[in-house]
Design a protein around this nucleic acid. Structure first.
Lengths: 250, 250
DNA sequence: AGTCTCTGTTACACACCGTCACACGATTTA
DNA sequence: TAAATCGTGTGACGGTGTGTAACAGAGACT
């Protein structure tokens, strides 16, 4: 199963460990075939032996934990380009399911780890990924700990807007591929509260619906203000596209 | 400033980069003198140039973020042995202050990073640290997202009990060095709710106060049940002391 | 001792959000 | 076509936790 579907990356025909030095972490995944998952299908489960690292190439994934009474907490949504399973425990810390139809590439830990050992240039990139994940987790803690329902929803919309901003430099449109329940479990709210809050934002003209899962941002400034991030040093202007190169290890 | 105050570690008299290969990550910090901070004093601030990595050797630190209206979110408490500032951004993601009088060792990023490059055996340990931090953050998200006030406080008490458990294998006593406000900002509650909830736990005989900042756990089983972690695969029995060695990179 | 300050506790009214219930539209099934 | 199912929106209602208090205790200081 060493054949590669994606011909543009055909220069890496061999298994990752035999390939020439990759410049980018993502290239490690080019050597393995893509797998497909239907919407709702599980990729791995919390507590499973954590044998693989994944790279999403299409679609959206949700990662979540379940606690007593079946309460679910979605700790993140993962989009194309994101890596999953980097947390270096022997077992997965969370479960992962496809929100939309998903295509991803799976790499066993061993070759992944060996690649990191072998090519030091990859390590800063890897650190940067883990670091971003940590930063995101911290922001989420802030959201869950101290933000109101409205601030949570606004923050979520801004998050998605920024994410799409990467693809569509213009365009104030957001697409919400996940259900209201997913949003609720991500934001620490209920579906009803999410629904009502969105309705309220629409009523105020901050956003405007274009179907159930698409919205236009009519007042970006207002939406940003509603996030409640009136925060220390973070500037209001869009930061430059995320540096994927870690600052250190030098 | 190469002299070392702590004579028991005098074998590492030189700067970390010149020292013999350390077996443990912590040893990197032996070469630098300890600094002292009074209770309430700041160590570094969110947004500061992240030039240093710290190891707490005595006392307790709180790390936190501030958002609009001065709302504060404490993302963690750090005890002796914990490392701070590992997140690999160019700027600190959070601020750090001393809860109690604190002594810590500070290492510039450069020698720290160089040590990681030079001695591959240290990398798994470093990964393990970051990974633990990630796992803790996830648990905290669960707590903040879906747990009731009582479950939050119970979880917090169990956390501290387990932490002290490392030092005192027996003894069902917990010491809360931080104020109720700190607890509240960590648990996403208000001081009043924290206070009320503790009172309730005392009234039910689950814990019993021994001064404002010390409690005895009278019914450990009950307290554990109140945590709401009735969770999938996590066993009820105490896990073996945390592995500090990462499973991989092998 | 007496006073001041700081932290923690308790009380009560209120707000936000969760719970429960049902309606609506879209899609699937009989 | 009718019925069922699912995701979603909206309303009424109530509970958990909040906010504003006042109060109690423990130290620190004169």
């Amino acid at each position: 199963m060493l054949s590669v579907a994606y011909s543009a990356e055909a220069k890496h025909l061999n298994a990752a460990r035999l390939a020439p030095q990759p410049e980018r972490l993502e290239e490690l995944f080019c050597a393995v075939p893509r797998e497909s998952f239907e919407a709702g299908e599980g990729v791995f489960w919390e507590g499973d032996q954590a044998d693989h690292v994944f790279k999403v190439s299409e679609g959206v994934l949700r990662v979540f934990k379940i606690i007593a009474d079946g309460r679910r907490v979605i700790t993140g949504f993962l989009y194309a380009g994101d890596l999953v399973g980097l947390s270096l425990k022997d077992r997965y810390l969370y479960s992962a399911e496809a929100v939309t139809p998903v295509r991803l590439r799976r790499l066993a830990r061993k070759p992944f780890a060996e690649a990191l050992e072998k090519w030091p240039d990859l390590r800063p990139q890897f650190f940067a990924r883990v670091c971003d994940e940590m930063a995101t987790a911290q922001d989420q803690m802030v959201l869950l700990s101290r933000k109101s329902a409205e601030e949570r929803v606004a923050t979520f919309l801004m998050l998605l807007a920024r994410r799409l901003h990467g693809c569509h430099p213009i365009g104030r449109r957001i697409h919400l591929p996940m259900s209201r329940l997913d949003m609720a479990d991500y934001l620490g709210l209920t579906i009803e509260t999410v629904s009502r809050t969105i309705t309220k934002l629409v009523a105020r003209g901050v956003i405007s619906p274009e179907g159930r899962h698409d919205f236009a941002i009519c007042k970006p400034g207002k939406l940003l203000a509603l996030c409640g991030d009136g925060d220390s040093y973070e500037d209001t202007i869009d930061r430059e596209p995320k540096m994927r190169q870690a600052i250190w290890p030098h």
